[in-house]
């Protein structure tokens, strides 16, 4: 599976390299779009010293962790939620006759490394945040764990979004509400949102395990909802549970696939 992934990703990278100018512009574009979110955080903190009980450094840490996970998930698996385009163009048929998983073929479809720019940027913000926070090693080990769990959670969301498109071929934007919406949600401390939403994000759609719960653990701060501090350590379990659901949904989607006219 990893071999097939590398093989196809490399093929698409070579194909994209044929269009050098486009490649350079897209890389710059991805970098600037990521920069907009940072600009918004900068403007917010130019107007206030704390947002829902969190200071700029803590928000940088939370933003950086979630955005890094999202950017890497998007780079590696983001194409999965473009499946309705493949369905319409009939190219999913071609993927289904190859001896490789259609999910891997989807994930690598039109793979271009230019989206790495956003990950670099998020990583930088995370690094600055961490450097200023002075977190003891006894809790800092959780940072890489939460980023990896976050990648799995977002990859599962992209897959769920893709699976949804087998049902809603004409309404693909619904999927962006979950994927890109999920990324935007985690850019700010979840204490910004209504407690009912945060409970939903903890117990139903486990987005709180991307950066909020593990982030609280790393920061050594109590959960406003009163959950114990070890809740954050459950991130890998939450990620695997969501991945399992996504895998089932994807299989169901492939079985329901209707193909196009001819």
């Amino acid at each position: 599976m990893i071999r097939t992934y590398a093989l196809l990703a490399w093929a698409w990278t070579r194909a994209a390299a044929q269009y050098r100018v486009s490649f350079a512009l897209m890389t710059a574009g991805a970098f600037v779009i990521g920069g907009l979110d940072i600009a918004v955080i900068w403007i917010i903190f130019a107007n206030t010293g704390s947002l829902a009980g969190f200071g700029l450094t803590e928000v940088m840490f939370l933003y950086g962790a979630s955005e890094l996970a999202f950017a890497l998930a998007d780079l590696l698996f983001g194409s999965v939620d473009r499946i309705s385009q493949q369905i319409r163009a009939g190219t999913l048929d071609v993927m289904l006759i190859r001896p490789a998983s259609p999910w891997v073929q989807m994930a690598t479809d039109r793979f271009t490394p230019h989206r790495i720019g956003r990950a670099v940027q998020a990583g930088t913000v995370l690094g600055i945040g961490l450097a200023r926070l002075d977190i003891p090693l006894t809790r800092a080990w959780m940072v890489p764990v939460m980023v990896v769990s976050g990648i799995v959670i977002f990859a599962a969301l992209f897959t769920l979004g893709g699976a949804l498109q087998f049902l809603l071929t004409d309404a693909t934007e619904v999927a962006s509400a979950f994927t890109y919406g999920g990324a935007m949600l985690n850019q700010y401390p979840l204490s910004v949102y209504d407690a009912r939403i945060v409970r939903g994000l903890t117990f139903v759609l486990p987005l709180a395990f991307v950066n909020w719960q593990p982030g609280l653990y790393v920061l050594g701060r109590p959960d406003p909802l009163g959950l114990p501090s070890w809740t954050g350590l459950l991130s890998p379990a939450a990620a695997l549970a969501l991945a399992a659901v996504a895998a089932l949904a994807w299989r169901a989607g492939i079985r329901r696939y209707r193909s196009t006219g001819s």
């Binding site: 309705s84 369905i87 319409r88 071929t169 004409d170 934007e173 962006s176 890109y180 919406g181 209707r258 193909s259 196009t260 006219g261």
Partner: peptide, 13 residues
């Protein structure tokens, strides 16, 4: 067999 709409107007999020 049903063919989904060809090109929809673009725009996301």
């Amino acid at each position: 067999a049903p063919r989904p709409a060809a090109d929809e107007p673009s725009g996301t999020a």
